[in-house]
Amino acid sequence: MRTKIIHVYFLLLLLLAASLAAGSLFGSVAVSPFDDSRISEMIFWGIRIPRVLLAAIVGAMLSVSGAVLQGVLKNPLSDPYILGISAGGALGAAGSIAAGLPLFVVCAVSFISALAAVGMVYSFSRTSSGVRPEVLVLAGVALSSLLGAALVAVILASDSLQSVYFWLFGSFSFASPVFVKIAAAAAAAGISVSIFFSRQLNILLLGDEEAASLGVNTSAVRIAMLSAASLLSAVSVAMCGIIGFVGLIIPHIIRLAIGGNNVFLIPASGLLGASFLVTADLLSRTLISPAELPVGVVTAFIGAPFFIYLLRRRTDV
């Protein structure tokens, strides 16, 4: 098993390097990093590189967030948005777009309302004996529907569908060096917390009593992991809208390859998620170039068939 894990990690690093290279070198316009004309420089360093890096960081953030939530909530259907993050973030974005606020304010409001939504879901599901995962999931689904309805009302009242569109289907077109820096800081914080508590998360899966008898502070681990996952998803929703599929499927693909040990699963999900989203974004900006496909459409189109194939192959054996 250990050599297999090393092989898989090696492969994942190779994949990430290849996708970063492809994402940087290809696009709707042919430019080379060695071309020093003002225009090529602006396209390569000002537009393309920030976009590729943001896609990589967000891919890692969503996949780690999904892996963590699937563990904490003990639910294989958990994705980064299950606790109301997407609905809260989109509603915040739509509200501030309707109010005519500038882009960075829209992102900030989207981030805050995404966190507010998780906070509400969390407070709904707290009982005297701590937070119960199944209640969290159901409260998340309920609040998401409520906020989703409010989102439709805001869009209709303000006629802002064209601008909100980016948040609803996901896009990296707004990537800038500032976005990359903020995302990198959030990713570093959220992913390190997730990796730090990954061993305790394994123990948590044995059941609360068992974990407690092994000296694990179950509610502390749960809160730390939920906070890390929420931070990761809220930042990505604020910067590039809702990108489905990645956070749900990537951890499962890793599980099929190396099993469910969170110590290996969480970092590997981050690596694969980064390569996957860089590739999906490359396709989204080149397939119907110069127009762009929403990246969420691409992730589902290439990801879903591939995952079904893996699933079938696994069950045939």
């Binding site: 225009i39 602006m42 537009i47 569109y165 077109s173 900006r285 110069p290």
Partner: peptide, 15 residues
């Protein structure tokens, strides 16, 4: 030549 619609292609525009 086209530069996109709802989403404008910044690379194409700059080029």
């Amino acid at each position: 030549p086209k530069v996109g619609d709802l989403t404008l292609n910044a690379e194409k525009i700059a080029s």
